[in-house]
Design a protein around this nucleic acid. Sequence first.
DNA 1: TCAACATTTCAAGAGAGGTTGAAATATGGA
DNA 2: TCCATATTTCAACCTCTCTTGAAATGTTGA
Lengths: 109, 109
Amino acid sequence: MDEKDAIAMLGALSQEMRLRIIRYLIGRGDDGASAGEIAEAMDAISSKASFHLSALERAGLITSERQSRKIIYRVSFLGLGGLLSFILNDCCSNHPDIREHCGLPNFEC
Amino acid sequence: MDEKDAIAMLGALSQEMRLRIIRYLIGRGDDGASAGEIAEAMDAISSKASFHLSALERAGLITSERQSRKIIYRVSFLGLGGLLSFILNDCCSNHPDIREHCGLPNFEC
DNA sequence: TCAACATTTCAAGAGAGGTTGAAATATGGA
DNA sequence: TCCATATTTCAACCTCTCTTGAAATGTTGA
């Protein structure tokens, strides 16, 4: 996870429908959801949902797996965790007391 | 910190120079840095730096304070912490074991 | 008040990103 | 093979963002 990856992930998350998709997929857990289910849940036409799903996948925030006719999307905990670590470490490595300002519990960075 | 605020912050961070400015200002700590120092550190013309500084300030990620002729910018630990909390809580509230996937130490969400 | 300094604002142009409907691709079952 | 289903790709259009140089604003000291 370098700076370029982080910028791509931040950009992918900074869009209303994409953030809603991430939240929806987190709620679905390991089951994930098909592109059609996601489009319906977002109240969006298929091409719009597909556009945003591919943006999220390109950024490494979700994964896809074909199951017969459907394509199942799942949130990538690895990707999301990597982004959080990037921000936290960029934060904490330079300034040890930032954690406190962040309202986050104490832990080693 | 609602969804709109988070999207604005994520969008503000998802740009190379703005992310570099944040990292630079974190390194400067409470002293902060003037617009001119930041522009020089970023190797950017003043209007370009000013454009990105105002984007970061609008998003709540940095603060500004005039000191005679100069304007001192500082990273907003409150803002940055709020964004982290938003992502973490959105994450953890729905799915308690995501922390583990994130590679983050254990703590209460 | 005037000049130098520090920074922002503005307008214009280039480029990236988002939305839409239609067409294309892929899959499974009759 | 043919049809229905599921999803993506494409092109067109619009909007938003970024960059640049020039002009405007605010501040200090002579």
